[in-house]
Nucleic acid binder design. Sequence first.
DNA 1: GTGAAAGCGCTAACAT
DNA 2: ATGTTAGCGCTTTCAC
Lengths: 337, 337
Amino acid sequence: MTPTAPRRRPTITDVAREAGVAASTVSRAFTRPGRVNAATRDHVLAVAERLGYAPNPAAQALESGRSNTVALVVPDITNPYFAGVIKGAERAAAQAGLTLVLADAQENPAHEEQLVRRLGPAVDGFVLMASRMPDPVLRRTAELNRVVLVNRACTGLASVVADYDDGTRQIVAHLAAHGHRSFVFLGGPAESWSGARRWAGLRAAAREHGLEATRFGPYLPILASGPAAADAVLAHRATAVVAHNDMLAIGVLTRLSARGVAVPEQVSVVGFDNVFGSDFCHPPLTTLAERTEEAGAHAIAGLGQQSSTGTRDTPARVLPTHLVVRASSGPAPDGPG
Amino acid sequence: MTPTAPRRRPTITDVAREAGVAASTVSRAFTRPGRVNAATRDHVLAVAERLGYAPNPAAQALESGRSNTVALVVPDITNPYFAGVIKGAERAAAQAGLTLVLADAQENPAHEEQLVRRLGPAVDGFVLMASRMPDPVLRRTAELNRVVLVNRACTGLASVVADYDDGTRQIVAHLAAHGHRSFVFLGGPAESWSGARRWAGLRAAAREHGLEATRFGPYLPILASGPAAADAVLAHRATAVVAHNDMLAIGVLTRLSARGVAVPEQVSVVGFDNVFGSDFCHPPLTTLAERTEEAGAHAIAGLGQQSSTGTRDTPARVLPTHLVVRASSGPAPDGPG
DNA sequence: GTGAAAGCGCTAACAT
DNA sequence: ATGTTAGCGCTTTCAC
């Protein structure tokens, strides 16, 4: 049997009364320890500690207009792809003395918009990860908030993006080197900005290398889309397939294995993201890795820059990508290799 | 080139002036739409919309003492194990009109404590997932905040826990049915509450079934601990191994495969958590699944209950577990099966 | 049905 | 070095 509701939180006034000083002195003891007599300060801090006092962030924010809190909005917090970005952002935020709150847009632009509206007044800025909001909404959002986009671009807004042009070139070069003459791209959601960039890059690189590229889809970028995607690949008699992301790629691997198709002997499979699991699926997946932690850290830094310089004219930051070659890709069945 | 800092946020006063009414009317138009003339209300809301006004949560919270925000603190937000809990909590929170913020304790009790202290005044309550804070700290925290624990118990505090007693019994029964006479438990961090519960349950069930149980470790519950753990298992000539969690189990699988040990022919492997990846690792992992989404939802509900009833005397809630049998476990090499 | 005024917890002038 | 005062944006009596 525990007591009832939590007891009232001590306020700065409680501490002041208990310590026999004015509220402003208590405030100073916390925020400008130098500007108060050492003895007084120690006494005040001791009383505060005893009472379990902690400054109310809401009140602080109201006064200063700054909450020292930034929000990171991701499309789906349970998608392992975002783990790296979150980690990187967390570390950078902690280092900058900022509290990071995470919010999940639940793959829903409307929900994302509502989230930003609700959180907006309470935070100092947003990192919008792979935002699905349309450009105009994004721009309107940026009028009232500091914003940095990650893996999404929108003219006039700061962003951090992966170098898909180079990354897709690496993928196509890898396939071409193994004697593949064509490949199939399994596309993700139509509204996905990164999906569009990936396909555009693949197509351009294919042209450079004289490969034929075909797009299938769209597929939901999840394991469960594997069977449909894999069956389409088999029907097309493709020797190589590049999936929108690793989840889809792993789903394809599972289906191919179930249908007795050998990977990479009969079909090579390549994914994007290098997510958790891509190294221990069967066979381990060849995939394009991004510097996700760096992206998260840069995004937070970009936010900080906007605060200090008072401008948001941060150039779009492009982060390198690199192909992680594992066992799921190899020589084309009819190729020279 | 975009403008400089975000423009000042419109306040309730701006809307009031623009709409030609008093601030209190604007407030009512939002919070008690019934108590204001329909025409006035529509006009006010239209003006608010045009100005892009959104109520400042900090100010609302300051006044009412309630923020309609709850915090979910997890030890490591990138650990796929927590994904289900997060999803469940999110859904329940949204349904209850609460904003859910996520915070990452970074596997660090001190950081967790600091987080709770900072966030405490700004939220209506905490869901503490697998908290690593010592009991006394937990109790002190609960004096100032509404708290619900998930997969952690502490007398006097509300909690939602998985039924490890029954779950471990399922695991041991499964191994016994396959003719195993003993197994090795690969333990996780010493301070892990669930780790302790898992081992206690396994030991008790082993006694019931006449199996011999040995504990190794502690190991960090991550993939990278696999080699050390697997080698220990081989040196012990064990026929079955139960790992603290799936990450460790998958790490073990990888090492066993590298060392040419057949699973499950030579060694059966069982994990805990049924995480993302346990179904597509090689071989797919037998593991004890928890109802994680339900746990998250119950935790939020528990918080709501504490608010409405004004008491925190929520009974500990025990959620069933079930063994997902996949290809990593089978008959003992020398057994009857 | 609507407006005026007070106050939530805190900080930043401005005294002293 | 410390106390006093005003005000951040909002809600809530209390008048009208």
